[in-house]
Write a protein that binds this DNA or RNA. Structure first.
Lengths: 211, 211
DNA sequence: TAGAAAACATGACAACCGTCAGGTTTTAAA
DNA sequence: TTTAAAACCTGACGGTTGTCATGTTTTCTA
């Protein structure tokens, strides 16, 4: 969603706080507005019939949660949970709808944003179906580095539990744990508690992209 | 894309014909317009680094090909190939852009459509990552029935090669072949040449959805 | 701070699935 | 119609990955 356009609306709104682990909204919930992330990171996930959670997207500062469902006026197809303490402002549905109608450029802005999301989703589909679990874990680390950066010591700024990594990658947490220890042995990454640091980005990337 | 809105534009355009197997556009191609499917079915696929093609979507009558790329003004992230003889009309980029700006409702219509695609993509991600190949093949047959129907003899109206099914499901063609013969033995489906008919929809559905 | 709960870790094992290799059948083209 | 190519099919085999079981460490809370 357009930062400029949305800023006008969101600046008038108060900020809500969500603690780590708190649910922002659930799957199949009727949303009467969207949440604009000011701070922190949220996981957007969907429950599979087999009872496992699949994380579809990680949303951080600037991202808008629930816009898809609000626009098509459907119940949410995803649930949103805070991965760390979050600040987000709530924008009621009618504010969105009004702006969409009043400002023609706004719709196009939102459209562009959703088109981008759609492309990313296509990429995820290809990765999920064509790559091995090991490749996907490697890619997840690269993604985390590119999108959330590293702390002063070179560790990934966003720390996910093994379980969450498994839910991003679509595998079992045991597999993630095993792959992490394999990557450590090979000198591709290092860890400190739950934190992960990429040691050899080149090799990790080769592994993720290669045949 | 809105049928009403688009109809105004598309009716003024002549129809292009594509033979079975013919390429409509390729990945990384710069598109200067979109294709509106009048007849026939196209596969939209993306090449994975491992050299395999992943079919992301099947587009039939009423679908618009290339709109995502045209809207964000990027080169195409997918390639489009005709699965059978097709009729499609070409709508140049500027016609789209003009209509987007001129008609505020049009943008919202397109937005809704893209929001729908995005939800479907999310579902595909979950299926790909959480279901077994067997479940995905079962689901593919159900999908083909629901979206393209059956012929007078009860066979799926859209006949895909084993290879194409494999590319939809994200597996090897051998696996698809093996699973098809297993489904036949179990009385879930029957085949006639390349054609497939669903014999026991209930059991097939259970298999696709179950734990 | 102690105890409980959650997260992390590792081994064993079987099922799943991709690959290779060899066939047969179907399709398309000469 | 003959021939070549493509598609289909099956078996064998090994690597990958999910599951279960069990133990350790970390985190949370009373």
């Amino acid at each position: 969603m357009s930062k400029e356009e949305l800023k006008k609306v969101s600046d008038t709104k108060t900020t809500k706080l969500f603690k780590k682990g708190e649910t922002i909204f659930e799957e199949n919930e009727k949303l009467n507005g969207v949440f604009c992330v000011r701070n922190g990171v949220s996981k957007l996930s969907k429950l599979s019939p087999n009872g496992k959670d699949q994380i579809v997207k990680l949303a951080s500062k600037g991202a808008v949660l629930g816009q898809r469902s609000v626009i098509v006026e459907e119940i949410s197809n995803l649930s949103a949970v805070a991965l760390n303490d979050m600040e987000a402002c709530f924008i009621p549905k009618n504010a969105i709808v009004n702006t969409l109608n009043a400002n023609p450029n706004f719709a196009v802005e939102v459209l562009r944003h959703m088109a981008h999301d759609l492309k990313e989703a296509d990429d995820v589909i290809v990765n999920m179906s064509q790559k091995t679990v090991k490749q996907r874990v490697a890619e997840a680390f690269i993604y985390l580095k590119n999108n959330f950066g590293e702390d002063k010591n070179g560790y990934l700024a966003l720390t996910l539990s093994r379980e969450d990594i498994a839910n991003v990658v679509g595998t079992a947490s045991e597999s993630v744990i095993r792959i992490i220890s394999e990557f450590k042995k090979k000198g591709l990454i290092k860890t400190f508690g739950k934190k992960v640091a990429i040691v050899d980005p080149q090799s990790l990337n080769n592994l993720a992209e290669a045949i």
